[in-house]
């Protein structure tokens, strides 16, 4: 099915908000979900899977990085990049600001690590070239390393950019099952209707035959 960037973002935000992701993490990861889909990458699948497999209490994952001379190590302990990604990219930005090319962040036991590609892509658009290795991590729990950008990756990012530009013109083709799963989660933000709420809604009781 075809959709738009903003429809994916709005739906993903609602799914994360209803799923009790930390405020701000929901906003960031919704943007990244849409960014990934527009780039031809499975943002909705990763988000849906993260919501399926992460208990609500674990969605407020915190970071306790071990820092040493511009290098940091984080044990994600099986947390999903959907919930941890915003913090990890913040940490990488801080390391880069203080240690330049020497900045390096290693993360162990991270799930949905592919979701980080969106954060790195967005950072690149804002002028901060980071890279991740392995650059195409499996969805399973994995270890990755973030470091300053590598010029050899330009083609990879250019390819994603071209896909996004096409998506803006023509719409975004998404997997319908992935879309519907996140859509179902997004509906949980809606408050069940009651007769009282219907009657107290804006515009209720007004005559519109005039």
């Amino acid at each position: 099915m075809k959709t738009s960037l903003d429809e994916i973002r709005r739906m993903s935000f609602r799914a994360l908000d209803a799923g009790r992701a930390p405020q701000g993490v929901d906003e960031d990861s919704a943007v990244i979900t849409a960014w990934l889909e527009a780039s031809g990458l499975p943002g909705l699948r990763l988000l849906g899977d993260a919501l399926d497999t992460t208990a609500p209490k674990d969605r407020h994952a915190t970071l306790d990085p071990q820092l040493e001379d511009g290098q940091a190590h984080v044990d994600a302990a099986g947390a999903s990049a959907v919930f941890l990604g915003p913090g990890l990219i913040d940490l990488m930005r801080c390391l880069a600001a203080s240690h330049g090319q020497g900045a390096r962040l290693s993360v162990d036991s991270l799930r949905h690590a592919g979701f980080l590609i969106g954060f790195i892509g967005q950072a690149r658009e804002q002028g901060e070239a980071f890279s991740m290795s392995p650059s195409d991590p499996p969805d399973a729990q994995t270890s990755i390393i973030l470091s300053r950008g590598d010029a050899h990756e330009r083609q990879f990012w250019a390819r994603l950019r071209a896909r996004r530009e096409h998506a803006f013109r023509e719409g975004i083709e998404v997997n319908q099952n992935d879309f519907e799963k996140v859509y179902t989660y997004s509906r949980k933000i809606l408050v069940p209707e009651t007769e009282q709420s219907r009657l107290s809604g804006a515009g209720a009781g007004l005559t519109d035959n005039d």
């Binding site: 930390p22 306790d64 913090g87 940490l91």
Partner: peptide
């Protein structure tokens, strides 16, 4: 950054 690592729920408000 450190504050938000420990208290991610304030991310939106702080930003």
């Amino acid at each position: 950054a450190e504050f938000l690592f420990k208290r991610p729920k304030w991310r939106s408000t702080v930003r």
